[in-house]
Design a protein around this nucleic acid. Structure first.
Lengths: 121, 121
DNA sequence: GCCGTTAGTTACGCGAAGGTAACCAGTTTT
DNA sequence: AAAACTGGTTACCTTCGCGTAACTAACGGC
């Protein structure tokens, strides 16, 4: 997404889709949850997303102030991603979306058992 | 969307995106709101969507039980679209999404002033 | 000096999503 | 008899999202 026509529309829903639209954004946000996650970890867990697209989406999300990127001058390099306040504010809404779709609520589950071998995507 | 890999994912957010993902779905749902709208009216208002794609999306939304399609054997033909209960249940969530994105909340506005020349898309 | 590590970037190319425009049915209007 | 109206469908073509794979930087270990 990131379509100019979307972002300048007079309809808020359309503008919102300009920021959150696209296959991956909500999934990334929902996976991040309240945690700080390294890039490699994201890439492993969200294996349906190619590395290239993942970095693109992360960059856009960062530009939109939804996630925070922290790069450390370590060796080997390390980059942590986490939600900003703005991003965190989305979580309860996403939970409602998930609850709407399925009776089960595995987003919580994925977030909580995140080290246990779940395959979120 | 409607990607098989999405719909069978173990992550609810991903499965949810399988149904609601795509540029247009949430916009159509949000535009429908509580009203019954004729096809031509939808096509006019959501002018960013081509007729072809609009019919495709409407068909998918109907298959997923989110909207209801009522065709009348009138002349000229008439088809009304409206949200099912499942679809209506999404509205408060979408309103929250819009509220999250912009301080203004024009989805309500668009729904309420729907005859007054708004251009929702 | 070569490999491995992490976090990317770049070039290349496919396939699906989407736009355009023509066409259809069936009846009233002109 | 032709045009117009509604709600589509279809063929055709273009665009772009996305995947694959190779490559980079900068350092530690062998």
């Amino acid at each position: 997404m990131r379509d100019a026509a979307f972002c300048t529309s007079s309809c808020t829903m359309t503008r919102t889709m300009g920021v959150l639209g696209g296959k991956w954004k909500l999934i990334i946000i929902s996976y991040l949850g309240q945690r700080r996650v390294r890039f490699g970890q994201l890439a492993q867990r969200l294996s349906l997303i190619s590395r290239k697209v993942l970095t693109e989406q992360l960059k856009e999300l960062e530009e939109d102030g939804i996630i925070r990127r922290e790069a450390f001058a370590e060796l080997p390099p390390r980059v942590d991603y986490s939600l900003t306040e703005r991003g965190l504010a989305l979580l309860p809404i996403l939970d409602q979306l998930c609850a709407w779709h399925g009776p089960v609520a595995p987003v919580e589950e994925v977030r909580q058992t995140a080290g246990a071998g779940q395959v979120p995507a």
